[in-house]
Write a protein that binds this DNA or RNA. Sequence first.
DNA 1: CTATCATTTCGTTATATGCAGAAATAACAA
DNA 2: TTGTTATTTCTGCATATAACGAAATGATAG
Lengths: 122, 122
Amino acid sequence: MESILSISKALGEKNRLRVFLALMDTEELCVCDVGDFLELAPATVSRHMSILHQAGLIESEKRGRWVYYRMDTEVDPRLLEWIRNSVRDAGFLMKDRSKIHEIVRLHRENDHCGFRGRKKTV
Amino acid sequence: MESILSISKALGEKNRLRVFLALMDTEELCVCDVGDFLELAPATVSRHMSILHQAGLIESEKRGRWVYYRMDTEVDPRLLEWIRNSVRDAGFLMKDRSKIHEIVRLHRENDHCGFRGRKKTV
DNA sequence: CTATCATTTCGTTATATGCAGAAATAACAA
DNA sequence: TTGTTATTTCTGCATATAACGAAATGATAG
């Protein structure tokens, strides 16, 4: 029951659910990808990812300066089936999908967040 | 996505999850059954049931003075499969299971909560 | 009708949680 | 080394939510 509870808590917050759905559609994301995606501060994103991780929904891998998150391969396929099926409608999802793909594209071409971030163009 | 979110929120609270699991194992429960089960005030129980109801997880039927809640027949079977499978372990569940059955038995024999409730036996 | 019981709604309080900023840690580049 | 970027942890604040009691509502019994 603890696992149902922690998973439900993890997915019961809009931003975390959006990240998880994005990771069902994207190989891997680092914290700065997600930061641009959700438009939240890195500290906040880090905390959200930690909650998803502790629920066993995602796994992390550190490569160089970046921590990449992806779907945990151990996630119960029954859960994924329910989610995939429930998300069929989702005009919302289309927007998020193109958004995350665009962000990943930019981040991989340039140096992740580096090309902007703290650099005020004012 | 809204449905995933509201369902996850609904099940992401321990007492609501316990009620939902109980309803996967019990035909129907009224508010006072659940009150004795969770050991919470009727007002609190009513609110929890309302949240489960709004998430589409349970349906209600008023019969006489009582409102009976049961699993909503429209709940996605994929969700139920995940839950059923995740709950296999659950030594906790055994305690809750016998507790709810005992409460229902007592309530159906006597007049629901009436035989005690506000009547302090001190 | 009046009384009683079950439930819901409302108001209040305590706790939990999302958020950002600052500081700490880690990895690399120069 | 020093500087830069990415991430995490910590702290404080604002909002969300779970809890109760009291009052309102609905239904039945007398």
